[in-house]
């Protein structure tokens, strides 16, 4: 029987213990009904999936929404997430795009403490990160910055020293690249 056992492992086996946890990006197209969002968020809580970010918005088809879900887990965990999502009747399509060629974006609005002395330095950093200053107050600046999560993270790291008054991040949204598209 050992012959079969060896064949088997090469074909279908998933070995749980050797898997590593990584960030997975899952995209779901769902019907736009009042119930579907609570069904899905309830599912994450109940099944103990580690949810890092969840964004919901319109997609190309009216009556449907697109959800981008970032979870921290193994490949097997992610497969279970996808299977459970499919069990929600209103869910039309789910795909794990973690290992695909994708464009990933997140937007952050940051209100930074800014004195006369520090203002120009902040503006330089914003410039480097191709952010926009969208509001100026007596003692603060509001900056809009877009990019993948690590770009937003490093921007926040740099300006943290000035003092962050308020921060709002939208969470990640992502899309597969076109057939030959490589333009950033």
């Amino acid at each position: 029987m050992s012959v079969i056992k060896n064949q088997v492992h090469s074909l279908y086996t998933q070995v749980k213990s050797t898997e590593i946890k990584t960030e997975h990006v899952v995209v779901a197209i769902v019907q736009e009904t009042p119930l579907v969002f609570s069904r899905i968020t309830g599912l994450f809580r109940r099944r103990g999936f580690h949810l890092k970010s969840l964004t919901i918005g319109a997609c190309e088809q009216s009556g449907y929404s697109r959800m981008t879900i970032v979870i921290d887990g193994t490949k097997t965990d992610t497969e279970q997430v996808i299977k459970q999502l499919y069990k929600v009747i209103e869910v039309i399509k789910v795909s794990d795009i973690s290992f695909d060629q994708t464009v990933q974006r997140e937007l952050a609005l940051v209100k930074i403490y800014a004195t006369k002395a520090s203002r120009s330095e902040i503006m330089q950093i914003v410039d480097i990160f191709r952010g926009n200053i969208v509001d100026v107050g007596h003692d603060s600046l509001m900056v809009e910055i877009t990019g993948d999560s690590s770009k937003v993270d490093s921007f926040l790291d740099l300006i943290r020293g000035f003092g962050i008054k308020e921060l709002a991040r939208t969470g990640l949204t992502a899309m597969n690249r076109g057939a030959s598209g490589q333009v950033n």
């Binding site: 279908y12 086996t13 998933q14 097997t76 279970q80």
Partner: peptide, 15 residues
């Protein structure tokens, strides 16, 4: 018939 049951509790060689 429920794909979510496969590989959930025990690991399966042939689903």
């Amino acid at each position: 018939i429920d794909p979510a049951e496969i590989g959930k509790n025990v690991h399966t060689e042939l689903p």
